[in-house]
Simulated assay, not measured.
Amino acid sequence: MRQQDVHDELRARLHEAAGQHEPDRARILARLERGMAEEVRSDHRATRPPVFGWVRVVSATAAVACVLGVGGYAVASAVKDDAPQQTVATTATPEPSPDATSRAPVEPADPSPGETQETRKPSGTPTRQQPSATPTAQAPTAAGEEDGPLWSDGSVDPHSNDFWAQSDITLKTSEELTALTVRLQVAQTGGVTSTGAWRSLPEDDFTLTTEEKDGFLVYTWTLKEGRKVAKGEWVFAGQYDHERGGRDAADDRYTATGTAGGEQLAVKGDFASHSGDDASSDGDS
């Protein structure tokens, strides 16, 4: 007979014997009771201390437990090879993370007397430097009614009446002008309000503004960029109503600035009568 067959037969017999084995618990308990009864008899009290009696009882109990344990182990060993083995995965108990605690944060320790804390002061608001003004070309100061190739004159239109008037500015230029600004100032003598304005040059070449400022009704004509004024004589006129009666134009004035051949020009004047004019000498200043 092969060794494997002998091993299988022996295993089968052990398995059968283990299944039929039943420990006689009654006999074991009876022996324990008899042992305890002998310890309490009077004829043994003088010869054996009680302590040793309890030792025997404990020893006997341990022996019974060993017998039962050995019997169970034998049965388990007999059937161990026949039963399918199972592997149980266990998870180790996780260790608590230091960051998962619910303790309140510990306040930082106060610095020692010898240490000094650095205190940062907020930087002051930076001073904003005002940008320097871009230098602009200043208009030339007019000295009179004529400046180089530019000549001017101011007069009240002869068709004016007791309720309405027109102030005319006449300009003559012997050179082409690449820039020109004409300003008429009519003093507020009472009831002065604009009723319109015109010029002998093309209307689309100029921008006109009308406003009341510092006691004057002001008309301003400005030549548009890229436009030019040809050589010749040109008129700029402002029309307005006024209170009934003759109106004194002594405080009215005008200015004109322009550019010819890269040179800046400026003229100014008033509306008083000049010698040789047809107007009466009452308007002379």
Rank of each mutant, 00 (worst) to 15 (best):
K224D: 09
A266T: 04
H242I: 00
P23S: 15
V6P: 02
A76R: 14
K213S: 07
A256R: 05
T136N: 02
I169Y: 01
D252E: 04
Y219F: 09
A139P: 01
Q239S: 06
G245P: 04
V235A: 04
S275Y: 02
V229S: 03
G246E: 12
L32Y: 07
D24L: 08
L184G: 10
A256W: 04
E118P: 04
H242V: 00
T181D: 09
F52T: 07
A104N: 12
G261K: 12
G190I: 08
G261I: 11
G245M: 04
V75H: 15
Q239G: 03
Q239E: 05
A62W: 14
T220E: 13
G124C: 02
L29S: 15
D205I: 13
K224G: 06
P23H: 09
H159V: 01
D82I: 13
H159T: 08
E233R: 08
R183Y: 10
E176F: 04
G114L: 11
T189E: 13
P96W: 05
G144S: 00
E146V: 06
V55W: 06
W198I: 05
A12L: 06
P111T: 12
D251S: 11
V58K: 14
L184T: 03
Y73E: 15
A137P: 00
E176V: 15
T61G: 12
T125H: 01
A63L: 07
D277G: 11
K231P: 04
T173V: 06
A104D: 12
T189K: 09
T257Q: 04
L177I: 03
V67I: 15
G69Q: 10
A165P: 05
E38L: 14
T134F: 01
V40A: 08
G276F: 01
S275R: 10
V106L: 08
A165L: 06
H242F: 00
L68Y: 14
M1K: 06
V75Q: 15
A187F: 14
P96L: 12
S112A: 13
W234N: 11
V51H: 12
T90M: 12
G53F: 00
D278L: 11
E233S: 12
D99G: 14
V79M: 05
L171M: 08
F206H: 00
L208Y: 00
G269W: 00
L265Y: 04
P96Q: 14
L217F: 09
R13V: 10
T90A: 10
A256F: 02
K224V: 07
H44C: 04
K268D: 07
K80P: 03
T173W: 03
L217R: 08
S285W: 09
A62N: 10
W54H: 14
S280F: 02
A237C: 05
E243D: 07
A237W: 01
L180G: 10
Y219L: 04
A249D: 07
V57Y: 15
A249W: 01
Q185A: 15
G72F: 11
G154Q: 01
